[in-house]
Measured scan of single mutants.
Amino acid sequence: MGFKLLSKLLVYLTASIMAIASPLAFSVDSSGEYPTVSEIPVGEVRLYQIADGVWSHIATQSFDGAVYPSNGLIVRDGDELLLIDTAWGAKNTAALLAEIEKQIGLPVTRAVSTHFHDDRVGGVDVLRAAGVATYASPSTRRLAEVEGNEIPTHSLEGLSSSGDAVRFGPVELFYPGAAHSTDNLIVYVPSASVLYGGCAIYELSRTSAGNVADADLAEWPTSIERIQQHYPEAQFVIPGHGLPGGLDLLKHTTNVVKAHTNRSVVE
């Protein structure tokens, strides 16, 4: 069995187990497998329904001669939608809004960016022009300005110390501490036991640490421990890039980060 097929099978099995364990909360999309990078042309966006009122959005972007996937989250909030992270750029984010209108038909009224990198804030200006209120932590807003990236308009308070959590509509926002970046936030959907790890969490097929220019490698494993301790009931975990899975993604990420750190020390 090929690795790609095995990865998709694991996603399907995880979703099936969740649907059985929580039949009222989960209505997993039966329309197909989780979209992969090879299936999404740059400039297009796919939506994948995880649970009743919960979707991931998947886009792709060219970077350094390669094409990478990027995940975000959409959560229903009454007759409105909360968006977590842009679709990595203005063109993708405009396509995301169009796809949401086509498939869901509810307005996106608020959006949260989970850290300051372009795959999370690139497209904020498109959201703002569409009347979406954009939010991020003060740290993310400051770092985005320093980096020359787009800056969300509103500040999220109460997320300055490791372990801080605040309720934001249908989700809980959690600051686990520094990891992929010093400002990275985690998003949890309690009604569906869905954990969105953003770039602080890796997919299972990833074996290298990737972009760690703004990471705190020493603190990252401790931050992941905080996530595990705060959300032990999480059933569906979405990484910032690639295929979702279960809580095993947290341990896998820790292993990859520690291996990278150990290699760096040896070198």
Rank of each mutant, 00 (worst) to 15 (best):
V37S: 15
V256K: 02
Q49A: 10
I238G: 01
E157L: 13
V257T: 07
L249C: 02
G177I: 05
L73C: 01
S161C: 06
A129E: 12
L5R: 11
H57C: 00
F63K: 06
I186K: 01
A111K: 04
R142H: 13
P232Y: 08
P152S: 06
Y175F: 09
T60Q: 14
R263H: 12
A87V: 03
G148S: 10
P23N: 10
A200N: 02
L82F: 07
L83M: 11
E172Y: 05
A179S: 06
Q229W: 13
W55M: 00
P23D: 11
G53E: 10
S155G: 12
R46F: 08
E80S: 10
T254C: 06
G242E: 05
V257P: 01
K102P: 06
A213K: 11
P239E: 01
V75D: 04
T261N: 13
L249I: 07
I224Y: 00
I238K: 02
K8P: 03
A259E: 11
G198W: 05
S22V: 13
L249A: 01
E39S: 12
A165W: 14
Q228P: 06
P152W: 00
E157N: 14
I227H: 01
G197C: 06
A133N: 10
L83S: 03
P190F: 09
H180W: 01
T253G: 00
N262Y: 10
Y196P: 02
A234W: 01
V256A: 04
V126L: 07
V237A: 03
A130E: 12
L195N: 01
P232L: 09
P23R: 09
V265N: 13
H154L: 10
I151C: 02
T36L: 08
P170F: 04
A90Y: 08
S162C: 06
A133C: 06
I186S: 04
V124A: 08
D79W: 09
L249W: 03
E172K: 04
L250K: 03
Y188A: 03
V126M: 05
D183S: 00
A19S: 14
S56L: 15
R76C: 05
S38I: 07
D52V: 11
L217V: 13
L247S: 14
L83W: 03
I58C: 06
W55R: 02
V75G: 01
L10S: 14
Y12N: 10
A21E: 14
L185G: 03
T254W: 13
S113V: 05
G163D: 10
S27W: 12
L247V: 14
A133P: 14
C199Y: 06
L159A: 03
R226C: 01
A209R: 10
